[in-house]
Design a protein around this nucleic acid. Structure first.
Lengths: 199, 199
DNA sequence: GCTTAATGTGAAAATAAATTCACATAGGGA
DNA sequence: TCCCTATGTGAATTTATTTTCACATTAAGC
């Protein structure tokens, strides 16, 4: 087989995307080098030109996810100025990530990625807690601007955000797409909004 | 090495417990036959006298978990009659399961166990949704007895239960025990209680 | 056009884990 | 007591996957 040759930068990106595509797909399986390679029409050994080993590849996948989550955050900040709307938007975007994007949310609770290597597990932990801290910031800003009740702890709100979004991902994947993510998130948002908006 | 000989019934139980102990332990790793065997001072091949293969063993582990969760439910039902108290008790028991028991909550979101085999994934899905249905029942009963607000959907409350408990498990395991499960659950309970009790 | 470094390949080796198998033995029941 | 079977063992064997390696090829710069 003769395959086009591309610079590493591009290939690295492609490999990460292939990995994500595989993880996001129907079947829940271990991410195999062979699969990733096949998905891109390369020999498995080609992957080693771009990543030292499987581990390095997984780390790159993780980094990609981190970037995605944070860019989402950035976009929402620019999209609207109202903190309640920002929260809502983040919630629904996350929902879309679960049901329509590639395997990002699945990875968040996957042994596969953070399970084995301690260092990676810690990185994942920091990604999630960092993300939650950002949500917390949105809430706090909303409180300062009088859009959100001040007698409710911003940290608790961030916890509820995770509490809405994470079980949805779990049930969606375990239920093989049967679980109604949008419905769940929509319903939860009504309750959450009710609870936090200034009356 | 000369090891005592025990009847299968006993051994099966021991094997499942060894598996759970390993999963619950510090290091998050793939459940290997070798590890389970070593944990009990047996040769790996001995395990095959009791389970056809690794898969059958994992299924037994899953069944054990199911039984544990449901017995918890049963105990709480007998312990108190007040539905709000029952909910609280379930929440805190689950918290203890996360931070102090063997690896049950970790398994709930583990690719390792429900990831590969479709049939097992579906079973896990049914276990969780069934458990939530029971929580929902507690809520509904509380509503009928006038202990819980009726203008709030029992299903939503069950969803929040999962939303409190599951992220706690995730963060506890990823954070290597650093995450304060009791604090999280305690805090959430205050909010939840506030939201659902009849005023 | 040539050179060469980066990228790709297939086959083989390394690693890892599950599983099988021939043999050993404990211990409950005739 | 002796037998028979369930349980246990260690040493292969199988299966799955990652990783290495010697060699091929492309494309970018000279």
């Amino acid at each position: 087989m003769t395959t086009e040759k591309l610079p590493t930068e591009v290939r690295k990106e492609q490999i990460v995307e292939a990995a994500l595509a595989i993880l996001g797909d129907q079947e829940i399986k271990k991410l195999k080098m062979t699969d990733v390679a096949r998905h891109m029409g390369l020999a498995p050994s080609a992957l080693y030109r771009h990543f030292r080993n499987r581990d390095a590849m997984l780390s790159a996948v993780l980094e990609h996810i981190r970037a995605r989550l944070y860019s989402n955050l950035e976009q929402v900040r620019q999209q609207t100025d109202n903190c309640v709307d920002r929260l809502k938007e983040m919630l629904f975007r996350h929902g879309r990530l679960i049901s329509r994007q590639q395997g990002i949310p699945r990875i968040v609770f996957s042994d596969e990625l953070w399970g084995q290597k301690r260092e990676r597990r810690q990185r994942m932990y920091r990604i999630i807690t960092g993300y939650l801290a950002e949500i917390e910031d949105i809430v706090r800003e909303g409180q300062e601007r009088g859009q959100i009740r001040t007698d409710i702890d911003a940290h608790v709100v961030a916890g509820m955000f995770l509490g809405i979004v994470q079980p949805a991902a779990l049930l969606y994947h375990m239920g093989e797409g049967r679980f109604d993510v949008d419905g769940h998130i929509g319903g939860c948002w009504v309750v959450l909004r009710e609870m936090i908006v200034m009356k």
